[in-house]
């Protein structure tokens, strides 16, 4: 880890000011992702700005929804009664993040903004697009955990955030501040598919901006289902997961939100699956059809074709959970 200077601002204003530095300044939340990257010299800031004391760490009701501070610890999100009542898929995702120790340290903002888990990105030897290099090692290499959607390149990572997926599905907005003001960005517009111009990042956050809040609209009456497929039950990243929110009109699905995780460079909304659900009644057959629809556009790499089947299953089972059906 390269030596760095450390700033511990007390509020948003100080924090964004501290991010402006002649060298490279970066925010540190729970630190669970950035410190590991710094130890591996993937990231080498000259200054770390602690945002845990500067940003909001509370969960507050607003307009029938919730406003979640970026400094809220993942454990506190997972165990929050309002969150689990209004947004059960967020609780379901949060309790599966990392390990107890990671959930105790990691923050909501850090989870959303963490860098890719890709093993090429995370090893210094591989000078890939995301490290300023001129290639992605995945297509010719070991791509068993890489993307099956959004694979136009240049990078084939999967987005690492578990929380981003249900946030997007629930229509969250992210509040962002910088020295020059603040803005709100819909979660749906926050994450970016890689292009040669933006490949160094996974979202629209500028280097001097901080994500301060996740603002969740009132969920209305809905059915919720979340399903993660994990190789290991203990600490592991999902092979694929799906979050499903269904609004019902009587026995019929009137609207559906289906978002997939760990399958694309961004949290991946599946409009195909949503279309397969709307107008249908809840059943295992509907769920299976949604699963099939979800993967119709999949474009796997050489060694991750199995993730198509895994993703199909995750969608099917998430719908079944929303329907209150037994999944296995």
């Amino acid at each position: 880890m390269k030596a760095f200077a450390y700033v511990n601002p007390a509020n948003e204003k100080e924090a964004v000011a501290a991010l402006r530095d002649a060298g490279v300044a970066m925010p540190i939340g729970g630190g669970q992702d950035i410190l590991a990257r710094m130890k591996d010299y993937i990231t080498a800031p000259d200054r770390l700005v602690n945002i845990k004391n500067a940003l909001d760490a509370t969960i507050t009701p607003v307009a029938g929804g919730l406003r979640i501070g970026a400094a809220v610890k993942i454990v506190d999100l997972a165990e929050n009664a309002q969150v689990s009542r209004l947004y059960p898929n967020i609780s379901a995702a949060a309790i599966e993040v990392g390990t107890p120790q990671i959930r105790n340290q990691g923050t909501v903002g850090g989870n959303i903004n963490q860098r890719p888990r890709c093993w090429y990105f995370k090893n210094e030897e591989f000078l890939c697009y995301k490290k300023g290099g001129n290639r992605c090692f995945a297509p010719a290499g070991e791509n068993q955990y890489h993307a099956i959607f959004g694979n136009d390149g240049p990078s084939h990572i999967v987005h690492p955030s578990s929380l981003a997926v249900p946030f997007l599905a629930y229509g969250a907005k992210f509040r962002v501040v910088s020295a020059s003001g603040e803005r709100e960005v819909a979660a749906a517009n926050f994450f970016t598919l890689p292009t040669l111009q933006n490949v160094l990042k996974e979202n629209v956050l500028a280097d001097d901006e901080l994500l301060t809040h996740v603002i969740l609209p009132a969920p209305g009456t809905a059915r919720h289902g979340h399903y993660e497929v994990r190789y290991k039950e203990s600490h592991d990243w999902p092979l694929a997961f799906a979050t499903v929110i269904l609004k019902m009109s009587g026995q019929t699905i009137s609207s559906a939100s289906v978002v997939l995780g760990a399958v694309a460079p961004i949290p991946w909304r599946s409009e195909e699956a949503e279309r397969a659900l709307v107008g249908k009644t809840l059943s295992e057959a509907t769920a299976a059809a949604a699963g099939e629809a979800a993967v119709r556009g999949a474009a796997p790499l050489s060694r991750n074709g199995y993730k198509v089947q895994v993703t199909k299953t995750a969608v099917k089972r998430a719908v079944m959970r929303a329907a209150g059906l037994r999944t296995v």
Binding site: A22, V24, M26, R37, Y41, A44, D46, G132, G133, D208
Partner: peptide, 18 residues
């Protein structure tokens, strides 16, 4: 190693010792 360090989506170049 310098190549690897200019890579994390960050502004500016490495400053001298603060």
């Amino acid at each position: 190693r310098r190549d690897f360090l200019k890579s994390a989506g960050v502004t500016g170049i490495a400053a001298g010792v603060v």
